[in-house]
Amino acid sequence: HHRSAMSPEEFISRIMEAEPPEIYLMEDLKKPFTEASMMMSLTNLADKELVLMISWAKKIPGFVELSLADQIHLLKCCWLEILMLGLMWRSVDHPGKLIFSPDFKLNREEGQCVEGIMEIFDMLLAATSRFRELKLQREEYVCLKAMILLNSNLCSSSPQTAEELESRNKLLRLLDSVIDALVWQTLRLGHLTMLLSHIRHVSNKGMDHLSTMKRKNVVLVYDLLLEMLDASTSSTS
């Protein structure tokens, strides 16, 4: 079993450095929200974050050495999970609140104005609560994010060509590095990994919700967010 070349400490250091900067929504938020105005603010913020996410992914050691097809597959599978994990991290010290950005903070009740979103807010708050309970550390947060990115497509399809096989092997070695970085506390690693299935679940719910809002013309989805949403929903339908 081939061991990764980079030490866990160096790996963590590199992914910490890859962290994207804080983003602000930079909108004049007129409260109370309407369904359309809240969805518009959420999607505007998501589009900005997605651009930074691509730069972040390219800084994850080994990511750009994967095939371009794999890079695309991974990002289109996991983008909403990554956005949501970031949201949970920003909200971890703010019980009952979702800190989308420093200038865009929502209470659970504010979700009432968008049909179907409160259920998703509740799931996000519950997962955030769990991270608070576990006293999630920054090193663990960045490792989890890298894990979500690298793991997102692992079980979706089997490699067919030699290039695909090589890329998959590189991916597995990268995942070894991430796990290596966290493995010093195996029980904790277990608890943190168990949360990944909840994050995937809330991301799937969120994706369905966003597709519905787009289909009903509640919100106009454009640019990179549109590409990622279409990519994600077309591959599951």
């Binding site: 651009v51 691509i54 730069s55 390219k58 371009l68 890079q71 695309i72 990002l75 289109k76 640019d223 990179l224 590409e227 990622m228 990519a231």
Partner: peptide, 13 residues
């Protein structure tokens, strides 16, 4: 995936 591809293949500044 035109925008995604563009962002993935552009060299960083």
């Amino acid at each position: 995936h035109t925008k995604l591809l563009q962002l993935l293949t552009t060299k960083p500044e």
